[in-house]
Amino acid sequence: MIVFWFLLIALVVVVAAVTLAVVGGGSEAVLPEAEPDRVVDALPETRPVERADIDALRLPVAPRGYRMAEVDDVLDRLAAELAERDARIAELSALVTPAAAGSTTPAPAADRQPDEAPRVDLGKDGR
């Protein structure tokens, strides 16, 4: 019977010690608050996004999947950069198209007729 009471008191002391340690009975907390999971390496702000940036991107996981706000931010940034690149490609294509339309096939050489095959110089001995 004495062993029973000893074990019961020991159990109460251990439970109380663990509870105080977790709750933080002292001046400093034993278990600090966990920071929310966020994107560690966000997309660069000072330069355009490259493929390596997308490959290295790891979105934080939430209890029910990914954090919608983080995913929305990344998708908005990528959509803006793609729209900017599409506009730049269209602008450059518009500049190239008139220049390409003005140039046609090169004129034939002056020393041969257009239907004549080009001459091959075989050297002195004809080989």
Rank of each mutant, 00 (worst) to 15 (best):
V30S: 01
G102P: 06
D72L: 10
A101H: 06
A83H: 13
A52R: 10
A79D: 12
V96R: 15
A34K: 12
D72P: 02
L59P: 09
A29H: 12
E81P: 04
P98I: 03
D76I: 03
Y66W: 11
T104Y: 06
A90F: 00
S93F: 04
V61F: 05
S103T: 13
A79F: 09
R38Y: 10
A87I: 07
L43F: 00
L82A: 10
V39F: 03
D41R: 08
P98A: 01
A83Q: 11
Q113F: 13
D73N: 11
A34P: 06
E50C: 02
R58Y: 05
A56R: 14
D37H: 12
E81W: 05
A34T: 09
A62D: 14
T104I: 08
D73K: 14
R112T: 12
L95H: 09
R67V: 11
P60E: 03
L59K: 06
E35T: 07
D37N: 13
D86F: 08
D53V: 02
E50F: 03
P108T: 07
A79P: 00
P32Q: 01
P98D: 00
T97D: 14
A100N: 13
V30F: 05
A29Q: 14
E91S: 12
A101G: 05
D53I: 01
T104A: 13
P60F: 05
L31D: 00
A99I: 14
A56T: 04
P32Y: 00
A107V: 12
A90G: 08
E50M: 12
A42F: 04
D111K: 07
L82W: 04
P32G: 00
V40T: 10
R51G: 11
A90R: 10
D73P: 00
P114H: 06
A90M: 03
E33F: 06
A94S: 13
R77D: 02
P108V: 08
L82I: 08
A83S: 12
T105C: 02
D53C: 02
A100E: 15
E35F: 02
V39I: 15
Q113N: 13
